[in-house]
Design a protein around this nucleic acid. Sequence first.
DNA 1: TTCTTTATTGAGAATGAGTCTCATAAGAGT
DNA 2: ACTCTTATGAGACTCATTCTCAATAAAGAA
Lengths: 137, 137
Amino acid sequence: MKTNTQLKQILQSEGFRYTPQRQMVWNELRKMGGHHDCEEIYDELKSKGTRVSRATVYRTIDVLARNGMVRKLEVGDGIARYEAKEDEDHHDHMICLDTGDIIEFYDEELERLQEKIVEKHGYTLVKHVHQLFVKKK
Amino acid sequence: MKTNTQLKQILQSEGFRYTPQRQMVWNELRKMGGHHDCEEIYDELKSKGTRVSRATVYRTIDVLARNGMVRKLEVGDGIARYEAKEDEDHHDHMICLDTGDIIEFYDEELERLQEKIVEKHGYTLVKHVHQLFVKKK
DNA sequence: TTCTTTATTGAGAATGAGTCTCATAAGAGT
DNA sequence: ACTCTTATGAGACTCATTCTCAATAAAGAA
Ligand SMILES: [Mn+2]
Ligand SMILES: [Mn+2]
Ligand SMILES: [Zn+2]
Ligand SMILES: [Zn+2]
């Protein structure tokens, strides 16, 4: 569980300022849990009376993503979604085409295989996108 | 190699009309080879003096994609790219973060593993997106 | 071939997620 | 408290993609 102090340290170590807006966006996304877009975060904050502008939500989410606090997820509907990265391990996503549900999965062997393939081509793996679009059986 | 007659059959079997514009978009994408966005297809057609509107390129590409003639590829820059699906087998993509190059790869075991994981969760795999973002070693 | 029906097209307007501008506010170091 | 610089808010703006609608042309019938 990342504390606000840790958020402060991470931001400041990169030359970013530790502002109340950034705290609010970060804490809100953590509290919400799951995968959410900027508009949802903005609405949630607004409904609580806190004043964080839409632009700041977008900017903050971007800062957090660049610093590994948050993960960006694009499922193909043109809306970027984000999830707070606590201490949890890496995982990929299954998206149910019936319900829109996002199920997380992790497979050791799958991760290894990707590395192997990339190496075979003379490259280094920086990141990957792996999404399985499924239907209920 | 898909012939124009095959294009006609596929379109008409789905109730779509076999129009010169659709032939031009399809043949142009095939001729170009590789992964291209709608603007590139539009420009290419325009440079050859053929008159196909931008809207029609977008609409046609969508029709072709829905009918398995074309594959959509989103690499995260907000521009959808497409590639003609001839008779070639399935493949996924490595995107070089240095050059923007798109390298195709296929791994039997990887494909099998995905199926296994999805089944384990009680779902059926409909499609998947697997992109490896890499850097030159 | 001509007629009818209905999908398609072109041109440009509209959409909308995300970005940018700029004047004002406020972190952080001294 | 002062200074320097980054962050914020409000709204304008971007730009890929979609939509509108009048005009056009496939496809099937006769
Ligand atoms: Mn997740
Ligand atoms: Mn390809
Ligand atoms: Zn993974
Ligand atoms: Zn694959």
